[in-house]
Write a protein that binds this DNA or RNA. Sequence first.
RNA 1: GGCACCGUCGCCAAGUGGUAAGGCAAGGGUCUGCAAAACCCUUAUUCCCCGGUUCGAAUCCGGGCGGUGCCUCCA
Length: 482
Amino acid sequence: MPILLHDTLAGQKRELTTLEPGAVGLYACGPTVYDFAHLGHARCYVVWDVVVRHLRARGYRVKYVRNFTDVDDKIIARANQRGEDPVALAARFSDAFHQDLDALGCLRPDAEPRVSGHIPEIVELIGLLVQKGYAYAPGNGDVYFSVRKFPEYGKLSRRNLDDLLAGARVDPGEAKQDPLDFALWKGAKPGEPRWPSPWGEGRPGWHIECSAMTRKHLGDRFDLHTGGKDLVFPHHTNEIAQSVCACGDGLHADQYARHWMHNGFVEIDDEKMSKSLGNFFTVRQVLERYDAEGLRLFLLGTHYRRDFNFSDQVLGEAELRLGYLYETLEKADRLAAGTAPAAGDTLLERCRAALDDDFNTPQVLGLLAEAFTAANTLCDLKGKKTPEQRAALAAFAAAARTVGETLGLLGRTPGAALLALRTRAAARRGIDGVVVEARLAERAAARKARDFARSDAIRDELLAGGVAIMDGPEGTTWKVAG
RNA sequence: GGCACCGUCGCCAAGUGGUAAGGCAAGGGUCUGCAAAACCCUUAUUCCCCGGUUCGAAUCCGGGCGGUGCCUCCA
């Protein structure tokens, strides 16, 4: 089964082809670590996590590389502001980034290179570009890439040089031959971190780091490069130019990464969420109030290429939905206990097929929805279940969990997840579980005495406080009302 | 201004030539002491508008209208 993906370079859906059969080298542009991860980061790294998981489920050996940009203007500015060492500040926020993504159930990449650890590789790559005549050092300590020497410059972002020229800007102190040229190396300014180089002390420009790190960890060419769609220009456009000129034939834009995938934005009130606009929620802010797995389900509810608007309402719905999924699994587990799964269940393969087609997670969730409804129908049938029914439920539960594994969902035991979800929801509503349990005990006594007036009064009172109760054969349970 | 993307039920959201998935909400029902949960049924002859191509279009083409993004740091 081929994997189809929307390839930015091709401008359309294409079949994934790899340099080496059965293996994928994947590079995801990582964060610049000067602050906590926000929901935009959460979205894209959850998506790339699903891409990695699905490719592996389809039998590919994936080498997943994601960098930390730890040398950068903003990091330096933030560090100076706080009187902290830039590299130390970056290390602090990369730790926080790990915590947040771990909480969201993202697998750690196979390699997580940092700019600060790849200066020699960067210097070497710049040297190669200078030597081949694609880059020049005007003598002010900077080194620039000569954009007009790469014929396919702008292919990824579908721009031509003349259009770009209108918006081009040259900062004072720069010595570009052409306004569109960009810095590979920036001469050191006072108070900035610096490393030695043939062109004097300084630090790497923004784009060269990724070219150097992909080269070191994945080779001169590799299979798949991903990132937010805001990186298409200039970052990825420049990366291609550098790498193709340094390591490829200097002519063709496809001689770096074979495929490019870009994710859409998370928005607030229909505006892009970004650090510079200041309209962002950090992952940890959201996780104070909501369940991490619920957030993950929410993020996967929209196809990765689309923008989507963050809202408390939809996030809350996703968390309730997660509760439903676990409740169903719990029932199915109970009824199917000790039964071998029936053969012939197609849920897993249908979900895999949906992921094969450009990682269509919303479609997978739709397929799961139908399967969960069907499973609930089976569970709710009156009377003792037949062996066939129990086997069907066992097959359902197994398939659902396997799909869940690829999505990074449904990995908890239902009981634990449901308790955690209820605790979370109760905290949001200011509900004290101990008080609820006490009232439920009173109500149980009333019901035993068939004092339904009193029992219903307690129920109404609890419901008014946001507590919904369910009477079952094994006693009364409660949850936070949706 | 240039280049992209997007506009599908009250809300969220798949579907990119073959006759509108799914979720939430809403209404009716089963179950229940009554409820809740769960399940069942119902809810877009229609996909921003106008033309065109086609046996057939939400899907392709042209033109509008509306929104967003990139062109400067950004996932």
